[in-house]
Design a protein around this nucleic acid. Structure first.
Length: 888
DNA sequence: TACTTTCGGGG
DNA sequence: GTGTACGAAAGTA
């Protein structure tokens, strides 16, 4: 029968390991394949007699010791080396054996299931064929079958998966977060991708509540928390989900549920293996939950990885992605509601239900699993590990298989001591990165900017020059090789193809096949899966370079990482020269891209030139320079910080957009006014090329601020309070506000863990003391501190932009923040209408301005129209002085 | 300007 | 489970 691998582990049966591979068939039924007769092993290199001697005291653990020949992993090896292959009985004892030996060992830190996968040439979410020899089993909840032979099958299909979302509500004290030891779970809500007992969702309530009519069918009331958790277990058993999701379940719901189950004496076997409990592990801030046979997919974790948002609260995320919101109840009221009237409780039940429905919808409607299923397939790791793990586990799994196929030993992960040594060495002879060309800063609108990119630069370099730990030559060997710009040498691929180049070639070729299929595919779902697959192949291929220079990598060799970037720098440099020699101006470039200016105002013409340039450049091996897009206008501040109006041609149609790199416009703790103003300014500059208009816009915003016409919401900054307000040492605006609120109304003061919004108001206290609650401000008609918003929030990021387009930087950044913006706006002479009561005096060309409060002198009017101290300005000239009313 | 420390999400 | 592991932004030297 044909099965898709979903999860795997092993268990000991009669002192022998049995690998359990949890699978799905095409219809979605679950099976567990038991694989006996597979034993753990590792390798040891050194004095063989001595090693055998040392292993004597572990005799009971060892099945077999044999001498075999393998290639060592680092440096080109002409011949294989003799090593001992030590086959043992119990995977969990391997670390002890490994550590007791004082010689080098290999492959003694590979998870048993992954060792099994590598040897059987199978992997996570891959398909296999096994004989359907069913066996009786009590250890797993699904049908078991035993097999001696596992055949790997190539298939892009995916078995249908059942997903269940969960969310808990707990007793919530007002002054701290709930804790498993003290607070009970009050409600537990579930949502199902495929309905359960005819329902799409279900809430279990830990006490009897009078339900609304419409709630009766999908709400279960029981008399205690214990009964509720038992009911929850029953539902898991019956519904038997493959994937369990929820919002922040790994950090909150699961540890909490497990904690309560433990406290109430409920067995925690929620998985498909009845002999294993839910496993929640915590290290510092991060915790993970593992349930054998199922997959825990936290929608919060996934969204945090895959999307860039200002806030990742469920309410905000659901609003953005689904257009749906949470039901509005404050956690402060939870306890009151829980102990309150039926009507309120009914709403609370809705609230709970909505949360798990949202968590499920995020996963299902946004197809958030696609990428991770694809990553699992292309790298061979388990689906669960694709969701939790990073690049390292993927790369190592792929490499282990390839190393083994080629009879090359795979190194152990480095010890802490080794990592420290690597770090020390690294500091001395630094790992150099890509080349970034010095940009011609400023606004470029005279012609088009062509953006030329090297197609997967580092993977291509690795393939072109056969770069791999296994092909690195030491100085003494003389063979045909590739010499790098930093004088490292790698053996020629004819003599020994490297493993890295070999794997990359496979990945890149497969990707181009998948991409072609994707473009031809008409079915939306199929197309989506192909997209995910080619994406995963790209991500995997691009991670190899990073891995070679990663301190904790098993195959870390600095020379390898350094060679790759050295070739990259040389390539970029040479390309720049060639393009310059062709008569074009290269205005910027970063690692794998060059930005070329062409003096044409015609888009199609620019497009032709781009293709022309690219076709003329000669490159070695697998390297390809691509012309991808062109900028109609380009504003570059510094290296890695620019904004551009970009045009890209796809299927004969141009798509345009504003592209921004390194310019902070979506930072969490900037008020919206800054983000909005920045975006508008950049748009005006790029799309209209009208710097003066942009300045007028800024002026307008400044005026609005001064006039108090800006919506408080746009000025508010939200920060969180993490500990008790009194334990903060420094002066922080939001903490000072929290203290103020506590004084005003101790009952609803913000507590540790809550978030608080504030706006800075006018006054003469220090900044932190002037943070105020937006609601309080509007109720009491307080004045906001416009100077603060202008000088400290709005202007700094704007100054960075304006300073590169003609406004003198030194002056702008100077302490007087004399207003160069204003100069640009009105270059020649300027009339200031000055009014001096009682008579009106117009001072034609004022010599300067004086602050009425602090008597400070200004040569020009600050942009804000006021002194730093907030005082009013008077203009003087021709011996007269008058009040400044307006700048024309 | 570079480095160290903090905080997210959940109730 | 032959496991040990985040990342961005704020604050500070």
């Amino acid at each position: 029968m044909k099965l898709q691998i979903f999860d795997a582990d092993y268990t000991m049966l009669n002192d022998k390991p049995v690998v359990r591979v949890f699978c799905k068939d095409e219809s979605g039924k679950t099976f567990c394949v038991f694989c006996k007769d597979y034993m753990p092993y590792f390798y040891a290199l050194g004095d063989q007699e001595k090693i055998r001697q040392q292993l004597k005291k572990f005799e009971g653990e060892i099945r077999k010791i044999e001498t075999v020949k393998r290639f060592l992993p680092v440096g080109y090896q002409k011949e294989k080396t003799e090593v001992l292959k030590i086959t043992t009985k119990n995977p969990s004892k391997v670390p002890d054996l490994r550590d007791s030996l004082d010689c080098r060992t290999f492959e003694a830190d590979i998870l048993f299931k992954y060792r099994f996968f590598a040897d059987k040439n199978i992997g996570g979410m891959g398909w296999i064929e096994v004989e359907d020899k069913f066996v009786n089993t009590t250890t797993v909840s699904c049908k078991g079958l035993e097999t001696k032979k596992i055949k790997s099958i190539v298939s892009d299909k995916n078995a249908p998966l059942k997903t269940m979302a969960l969310d808990i509500e707990t007793e919530t004290p007002t002054d701290r977060l709930p804790e498993t030891g003290k607070d009970a779970i009050t409600m537990l809500s579930l949502a199902f991708s495929k309905s359960y007992m005819g329902q799409k969702d279900m809430v279990i309530v830990s006490k009897h509540v009078r339900l609304r009519e419409d709630q009766k069918k999908n709400t279960i009331c029981v008399e205690s928390e214990k009964k509720m958790l038992e009911k929850f277990k029953d539902i898991i058993d019956q519904y038997d989900p493959d994937v369990i999701t929820g919002y922040n379940i790994e950090n909150f719901d699961f540890p909490f549920i497990v904690g309560r189950m433990e406290k109430l004496g409920i067995k925690r076997d929620l998985g498909r293996a009845k002999d294993k409990s839910v496993f929640c592990s915590k290290y510092g801030p991060r915790s993970t939950t593992r349930i054998t046979g199922r997959v825990v997919a936290d929608s919060y974790q996934i969204i945090k990885r895959d999307f860039s948002f200002k806030s990742y609260k469920l309410d905000a995320v659901a609003e953005k992605l689904l257009g749906k919101k949470k039901i509005d109840i404050s956690y402060r009221d939870f306890n009151k509601i829980w102990n309150g009237k039926a009507e309120e409780l009914q709403k609370f039940i809705d609230y709970s239900r909505r949360d798990s429905v949202l968590a499920l919808d995020l996963i299902e409607k946004k197809n958030l699993m696609d990428k991770y299923v694809a990553l699992s397939k292309v790298s061979g790791i388990l689906f669960q590990d694709a969701l939790n793990g990073g690049e390292t586990i993927r790369i190592e799994n792929v490499l282990l298989k390839e190393f083994n196929k080629k009879d090359v030993l795979f190194p152990l992960k480095p010890s802490d001591r080794e990592i420290m040594e690597r770090a020390k060495k690294r500091k001395k002879s630094e790992l150099k990165g890509g080349l970034v060309l010095q940009p011609k800063a400023g606004l470029h609108t005279d012609g088009y900017i062509l953006v030329l990119d090297f197609k997967s630069l580092y993977p291509s370099i690795i393939r072109t020059y056969n770069i791999c730990p296994t092909t690195l030559l030491s100085d003494d060997i003389k063979v045909k090789c590739n010499l790098s710009p930093i004088k490292t040498r790698f053996v020629d691929s004819e003599i020994r193809p490297g493993i890295l180049p070999f794997v990359l070639e496979r990945l890149i070729k497969e990707r181009s096949v998948v991409k072609k299929r994707m473009h031809q595919e008409k079915d939306r779902d199929e197309k989506r899966l192909l997209y995910a697959k080619q994406w995963a192949l790209k991500i995997l291929a691009n991670a190899f370079y990073g891995y070679t220079g990663y301190l904790r990598a098993k195959t870390y060799v600095v020379e390898v990482a350094n060679t790759i970037t050295a070739f990259g720098r040389e390539l970029l440099q040479k390309t720049r020269e060639e393009i310059t020699n062709m008569g074009y101006e290269v205005i910027y470039g970063d690692t794998d891209s060059v930005f070329v200016k062409v003096k044409t105002k015609d888009l199609e013409n620019a497009y032709r030139k781009g293709n022309q340039i690219v076709s003329k450049i000669k490159l070695p091996g697998k390297l390809v320079l691509e012309f991808e897009k062109t900028f109609r206008s380009f504003l570059i501040l510094t290296k890695k910080r620019y904004a551009a109006w970009s045009f890209e041609k796809t299927n004969d149609e141009w798509t345009e957009k504003i592209e921004m790199k390194g310019i902070e416009t979506v930072r969490r703790d900037w008020p919206d006014i800054v983000t909005e103003t920045m975006n508008v300014v950049i748009n005006i500059i790029l799309k209209e090329g009208d710097v003066k208009k942009a300045i007028r816009y800024v002026q307008g915003e400044v005026d609005k601020l001064n006039a108090g016409e800006v919506d408080l919401k746009k000025l508010a900054v939200t920060k969180s309070i993490t500990k008790s307000v009194d334990r903060y040492e420094g002066m922080l605006p939001h903490i000072e506000l929290a203290k103020k609120l506590r004084k005003r109304s101790p009952s609803q003061a913000p507590v540790a863990g809550s978030r608080i919004s504030f706006v800075i108001i006018r006054g003469n206290q220090m900044l932190s003391k002037r943070a105020e609650d937006p609601e309080y401000i509007s109720e009491n008609k307080l004045k906001i501190d416009s100077c603060y918003y202008i000088d400290n929030q709005l202007l700094p990021p704007l100054e960075r932009i304006f300073s590169v387009i003609g406004v003198d930087k030194g002056e702008l950044l100077g302490k007087g923040r004399q207003c160069n913006l204003k100069d640009l706006l009105k270059p020649a002479k300027r009339n200031h209408k000055i009014e001096t009561p009682p008579e009106k005096i117009i001072i034609e060309s004022p010599e300067g301005f004086l602050c009425r409060e602090c008597k400070r002198n200004f040569r020009r009017i600050p942009l804000v129209g006021r002194c730093d101290c907030g005082g009013e300005l008077f203009a003087f000239g021709n011996g007269n002085m008058g009040k400044l009313i307006k700048i024309c």
